[in-house]
Design a protein around this nucleic acid. Structure first.
Length: 131
DNA sequence: AGTATGACTCATT
DNA sequence: AAATGAGCCATAC
């Protein structure tokens, strides 16, 4: 029988993510910060990375958001955009428009895939979330 | 074990 | 202003 695809992916991947959650991980730290973003505010990857140590680890924050799909409690990943306020991660949500819809539900204006008042709404954990 | 990739960002050209 | 290269580092293959 032709090489049937073993149902590895989802199950094992989720288990792997759970393992990451259980032990102290970079992801956990990221999610912790993201969960504290006030409703109606947004931040970006670099700010979170900077708050956690080096701002050059922004790519890892993006990875954490990707993994946030499995995170519980839920992580408001839609409040994290790139440094220009653009919804760079919207393609990774369940539906392409979900991210924008979630933002608009919080009274955040989104136009052409970017947060209109990004500068006003920007929430910097390093400044506003003093340990 | 080495290479490639990424929901990023910054400096340089 | 747009393109390019570099730095970052966990995962995937």
């Amino acid at each position: 029988m032709p090489n049937r695809k073993p149902a590895t992916s989802n199950r094992q991947q989720q288990q792997h993510i759970k393992d990451l959650i259980n032990k102290h991980s970079f992801f956990e730290d990221v999610w912790d910060v993201v969960r504290q973003i006030p409703k109606g505010r947004v931040t970006n990857y670099g700010a979170i990375a900077n708050y956690l140590g080096t701002k050059m680890s922004a790519r890892m924050v993006g990875w954490a958001m990707n993994a946030a799909f499995y995170a519980k409690p839920k992580v408001p990943a839609h409040r994290v955009v790139n440094r220009n306020g653009m919804l760079s991660g919207k393609a990774h949500f369940a539906t392409p428009d979900l991210m924008q819809q979630l933002l608009e539900k919080e009274k955040i204006e989104v136009r052409k895939d970017k947060v209109v008042k990004f500068n006003e709404l920007f929430w910097d954990p390093a400044k506003e979330l003093i340990l």
